[in-house]
Design a protein around this nucleic acid. Structure first.
Length: 813
DNA sequence: TGATTGTTTGCTCCA
DNA sequence: CAAACAATCA
């Protein structure tokens, strides 16, 4: 097969290059994914590289899945790709540690391969616990998040608590070092790794275990890294360690799209690649196949304001296309309505074109969602609050974690009194004190407290009950498949009953979520996954994985939009302080990153690009509107490419008829987020039948037939590192072909038009008559009775705010 | 002592 | 409009 057909000369060069380190500078829309997938296919087919000798790293599970599918498609009927590894850095490291991590115990006391993973929430809980222990408060010391951020930063720069303490110039930092130290101690004691550790410890393992590293290098012939501009130090090191022998690294990136410095991404990785690899060859892909000329020019002009670049100028053969629309809204609500209105209009003029609404921060989505719902538009929200971040899911998983690993203090404390079982603050304090005193886990502390018999009778009984319950769960965990275990947890702990007894509006969806989790567990069990595998997936799932590219309207942050493209793109909230974000205003480096972020946003658009800002923006629900000024980025776009929209502040010509609201969809019912994540989870588990290597004490789980013989590793007598398991994606290779096409149709759980309920006078959605403006539709109502403030949309006049009792309005049926 | 209700904050982007 | 905390009630 000719994998070079349809590629331009530069792309072809990138696909076929065979001389060691290769840096592909791939501008936005230049066919980057195409090049990587073709290169992998080419290596396998034309160069005879076995698929298990190729490792490709991506940023999200979704990108990995797509890449794998595309390679499979290219090689269909010619080569099996069962052994091919396409993975995110994080899941790669988890698998590495779970499979071959034993020797890490020498470096990290207490480490075993059945470690647990602490996500950000767990990390925060840990920091809080440390604060409590040290008698610190957020007010008196430092915000939890800030502390965690600094700790994480120090960690990823390989600076331990001792160094932090030694170099501390201020007392705050010395104290922080103490927190840091205790934080690390507790992680170790619980045999838990946080997200930083996953990468760091994998790197340490490879650095120190020469035999393991050699085995991996023996096997791996090519390492490819996507989104290289967003790799951090650990990821860079991992890449080097895995490619030490053959030095066949191929990295693909675009320094103009580096947007993760806050997560430790080091832009120098890409800027200095040619120095780090002296014999590296750089190939530039500068032809853009995505956007119109106007969009491309505008974006390029914007990013040209940056200094930290290698410099490239994208070009396209596409036509100029429409100009970029910039809309100046009176307030954020008006902005949202304008977006909804424009999308509604575009649905007629360019049917079938998907639209994306991009924003800098998640909180912006709320108002936009509301506007879309008023227009009865279907939409999907990506991220924000994913399934696995939901309290009920985290609770359920905490039960599971605590049952599997009694040393997991964070999980245990999370559910020790959920549902309420009479273990209150004082008791918990007593337990924590005991744990500190004896330097044992919370579980062990409870045991010893009970044994000592010092507890008040009520607490004693409650704790005994809790211990028995957990012991029963543990027995269940040992004997039952994961979904029965989850069901057992939901029922025997009283968790489900607690939800059922709750009459708050969203308890129903919580129950649904719990069932969904059990359902997901059942599917996992069918694939032969263990509870530990299940937890790994839950920890490593990402928001971007839930992007549904077929959705007509998508709402997502710019970060989540990386790598995606849409015919129509809106960028909302272009105000100084929001985008660029306020925290970047006094730092040139951070400002450049914000600019790159805006560049990423703009270059997502294929045909039409809309940018908007609002004079007033409300940050919290009922809070005050704060004044804003337009983003500097709007000024950095050549004005000749811009077309202004709207009659002026507050004067959107919103067609009242279309505003006839299909009903106020009950809040929380279809917040997008909920249904979004429900689909997400089922899809995720279905499409990613990842089956990591067996846990400790178990034989490697049945490997697919396609798996190459494991003899590549080690000499007889020594426990051979099971490299093949990493050179291959587990059961994914054996995934039935049918499943790849049969993506389950998304359930239309959208805000479907409901039969309008009777509209009451002045209610949102009703029509009123005003003496001066005529008929209009009530768009928003604040307050009650005759004091209520109504926001009304009058055709020809735009949005007006009226006080019910003064406006002299008549209500119509 | 623990559970419930009221009050006050609030600030990212993510694997 | 949340969550996180303080001040109540049982």
């Amino acid at each position: 097969m000719d994998f070079l057909k349809g590629l331009n000369p530069r792309q072809r060069e990138a696909v076929t290059y065979d001389g060691g380190p290769l840096l592909i500078l791939a501008g936005a829309g230049s066919g980057k994914t195409r090049v990587i997938t073709h290169r992998i296919a080419y290596l396998i087919d034309a160069r005879g590289v076995p698929s298990f000798a190729i490792v490709a790293m991506t940023f999200t599970n979704k990108a990995a899945g797509e890449m794998r599918d595309r390679v499979a498609g290219l090689l269909a009927g010619r080569h099996p790709i069962a052994g091919l590894t396409v993975s995110t850095f994080h899941s790669y490291c988890v698998r590495l540690l779970r499979r071959d991590g034993d020797s890490l115990a020498g470096l990290r006391p207490g480490f075993t391969r059945d470690f647990t993973i602490y996500d950000e929430e767990d990390q925060l809980a840990l920091v809080k616990a440390v604060y409590r222990q040290l008698g610190l408060t957020e007010k008196s010391f430092m915000q939890y998040r800030a502390a965690l951020g600094r700790i994480s930063h120090a960690k990823s720069h390989k600076r331990g608590p001792e160094e932090m303490s030694r170099d501390a110039k201020e007392p705050v930092i010395s104290k922080l070092a103490v927190v840091y130290n205790e934080y690390e101690n507790r992680l170790r004691q619980a045999n838990a790794l946080d997200f930083d550790d996953l990468l760091l410890e994998a790197v340490r393992l490879l650095q120190h275990d020469d035999r393991l590293r050699a085995a991996y290098n023996e096997r791996i012939q090519h390492v490819l890294v996507d989104e290289y501009q967003d790799t951090n130090r650990s990821q860079y090191e991992l890449m080097r360690l895995l490619s030490e022998k053959r030095r066949n690294v191929c990295v693909v990136g675009d320094e103009d799209q580096s947007i993760y410095s806050w997560r430790g991404a080091d832009i120098r990785n890409i800027l200095d690649f040619e120095q780090d690899f002296k014999d590296a060859v750089t190939i530039r892909l500068e032809q853009n196949y995505r956007s119109t000329k106007n969009i491309l020019e505008a974006a390029s002009a914007l990013v040209a304001h940056n200094t930290e670049r290698k410099g490239k100028w994208l070009w396209t053969e596409a036509g100029a296309g429409a100009r970029i629309t910039v809309y100046e809204a009176h307030d954020s609500e008006n902005e949202a309505l304008w977006i909804a209105d424009t999308i509604d209009r575009l649905a007629h003029t360019s049917p079938g074109d998907r639209a994306a609404i991009l924003y800098r921060t998640n909180f912006q989505s709320r108002q936009i969602e509301e506007a879309l719902r008023r227009y009865g538009l279907r939409y999907k929200v990506v991220g924000g609050f994913s399934f696995y971040q939901r309290a009920e899911i985290k609770d359920m998983l905490a039960f599971l974690k605590a049952a599997l690993a009694p040393g997991d203090d964070v999980s245990l404390l999370r559910i020790i009194n959920t549902p309420a079982r009479g273990i209150g603050k004082t008791t918990i304090e007593q337990i924590e004190q005991q744990a500190r005193l004896k330097r044992v886990s919370v579980w062990a502390a409870i045991e010893s407290l009970i044994a000592e018999g010092q507890l008040p009778p009520r607490a004693d009984a409650a704790l005994r009950g809790f211990m028995n319950m957990m012991a029963a769960l543990r027995a269940l965990a040992a004997s039952k498949p994961i979904h029965e275990l989850m069901r057992g947890i939901a029922e025997s702990t009283g968790y489900l009953d607690m939800l059922k007894a709750d009459d708050s509006p969203d308890s129903e969806s919580r129950i649904e979520n719990v069932h969904e989790l059990i359902h997901a567990a059942a599917e996992a069990a069918e694939r032969g996954e263990t509870a530990a595998d299940f937890l790994d997936h839950a920890a490593l799932i990402s928001d971007a994985d839930s992007v549904d590219e077929k959705a007509e309207v998508s709402l997502l942050t710019v970060h989540n939009a990386k790598g995606l493209e849409f015919p129509i793109v809106f960028i909302a909230g272009l105000e100084d302080g929001l985008f660029p974000h306020i925290r970047s205003l006094d730092s040139p480096g951070m400002m450049e990153e914000e600019r790159r972020l805006c560049y990423v946003a703009m270059t997502r658009a294929e045909k039409r690009l809309f940018m908007s800002w609002a004079h007033y923006r409300r940050r919290f629900g009922g809070g005050p509107s704060e004044p804003a000024i337009p983003s500097r980025f709007l000024r950095e776009v050549p004005q000749s490419l811009i077309e202004r929209a709207g009659a002026g502040p507050g004067e959107v010509d919103l067609d009242a008829d279309r505003m006839l609201v299909r009903d106020t969809v009950r809040k929380n019912m279809f917040t997008g987020k909920t249904y979004n994540s429900l689909e997400n989870i089922a899809e995720f588990f279905q499409s990613r039948g990842l089956k990591p290597p067996a846990g400790p004490g178990m034989a490697p789980a049945g490997a697919p037939a396609a798996m190459p013989p494991p003899r590549a590793a080690g000499s007889p007598g020594v426990r051979a590192p099971e490299v093949p398991g990493l050179g291959m994606p587990g059961a994914q290779g054996g995934r039935p072909q049918a499943m790849q096409q049969a993506v389950p149709p998304a359930k239309p759980r959208t805000a479907a038009p409901k039969p309008p309920k009777r509209l009451q006078p002045g209610r949102v959605g009703s029509t009123i008559e005003h003496a001066r403006y005529g008929r209009g539709t009530v768009v928003r109502r604040e307050g009650e009775g005759e004091d209520a403030k109504l926001t009304v949309s009058f055709p020809g006049y735009g949005l007006k705010k009226l006080i019910a009792k003064y406006a002299g309005i008549k209500t119509e049926e």
